[in-house]
């Protein structure tokens, strides 16, 4: 009986080869998938990584408090305007000094899509050899749930309220992963916390490819506090987002697109939005606009994957 049970152990355990460098109790909200992500990355990639990051949800833990540290990794805290530029400097120093390690620029969507976007685009154009990971929680969650440019249409945040004059954000979201893939960098991919095996494979792939140049990973990370969902819902939301094509999983090697997981019969986006409090004011008309936006983004990726096959 015991042997039979052991055979069913999930495959993800094979990727967790290294020890967890973090303290057992760290100051993330209960149920935050970001905590799972920061613990998952060093367990897959090894502890010889240097993380650079900016003021964000991850900073209080990654940066440490005064002279105390929450983890055993190296961390370099920078400003939001210069995240990718600082990582560039680190990589060039390590190359010159002959030190072999992995530099990971770990930022939220506020830094990646809004404030530090110029740096990010510049580093991608110069093809600097490091990994840029953007965890997308669709807003400035650390400072009090303000809207960012990756906030989707209709979402309620503290700066896009629902009331007489406003019905949530009235603009569409920026598809940052697509923009980065259009730089024709060696590796760009999207991942999420419900498909951990896929995420581990993409991290290992990025570590291999980063010798050739810039790698970009866009990780979908729901925020239980800011979105108004229970702490147990965050993984379920990731799964629903993939199944409704709200956040399709794909990767692009040198601009050649391929799906890592293609949903055969995508569900309507209502299945996803009804779970989240920030969307619960949406009328059928507004849901239609959101659905069209998602279909449009998906059709671009689908067309790109077909294009690649024709050229081959």
């Amino acid at each position: 009986m015991v042997e039979k049970k052991k055979k069913r152990l999930s495959k993800v355990f094979d990727y967790l080869k290294h020890e967890d460098p973090f303290a057992k109790g760290v100051a993330f909200c209960a149920g935050c998938p970001l905590e799972l992500l920061v613990r998952f990355i060093p367990q897959v990639l090894g502890n010889d990584i240097v993380i650079t990051g900016t003021p964000s949800c991850s900073a209080p833990v990654l940066m440490g408090q005064n002279t105390g540290s929450w983890h055993k990794l190296s961390y370099y805290g920078t400003l939001m305007t210069g995240a990718a530029a600082n990582a560039t400097g680190l990589v060039r120093y390590y190359n010159r000094a002959g030190i072999d390690n992995t530099v990971i620029c770990f930022n939220g969507d506020g830094t990646a899509a809004d404030i530090g976007f110029g740096n990010l685009s510049g580093a991608a154009e110069r093809n600097e050899p490091f990994i840029y990971i953007c965890y997308d929680n669709e807003g400035y969650m650390n400072t009090g749930i303000q809207r960012s440019s990756t906030t989707p249409f209709g979402a309620r945040t503290t700066t896009t309220q629902v009331g007489v004059n406003s019905r949530g954000k009235n603009l569409r979201r920026k598809n940052l992963a697509m923009i980065m893939a259009m730089h024709k960098i060696p590796y760009a991919a999207t991942a999420t916390m419900s498909n951990l095996e896929d995420l581990a494979q993409k991290l290992l792939k990025a570590k291999q490819i980063k010798e050739k140049g810039f790698c970009y990973l866009h990780v979908f990370c729901p925020c239980p506090t800011g979105w108004g969902v229970g702490p147990d819902m965050s993984i379920e939301l990731c799964r629903k987002a993939v199944k409704t094509n709200y956040f399709p999983l794909w990767e692009a090697l040198n601009g050649n697109f391929s799906f890592s997981k293609q949903v055969k019969k995508p569900k309507p986006v209502k299945e996803y939005t009804k779970l989240i409090k920030k969307f619960n004011h949406l009328s059928d008309q507004e849901l239609d606009i959101l659905q069209k936006d998602i279909d449009y983004e998906y059709s671009i990726i689908k067309a790109m994957t077909k294009l690649e096959k024709e050229i081959k």
Partner: peptide, 11 residues
Amino acid sequence: WSDASKEFLCS
């Protein structure tokens, strides 16, 4: 700076 060998935080 923070030094994990001396002061390792754990809440």
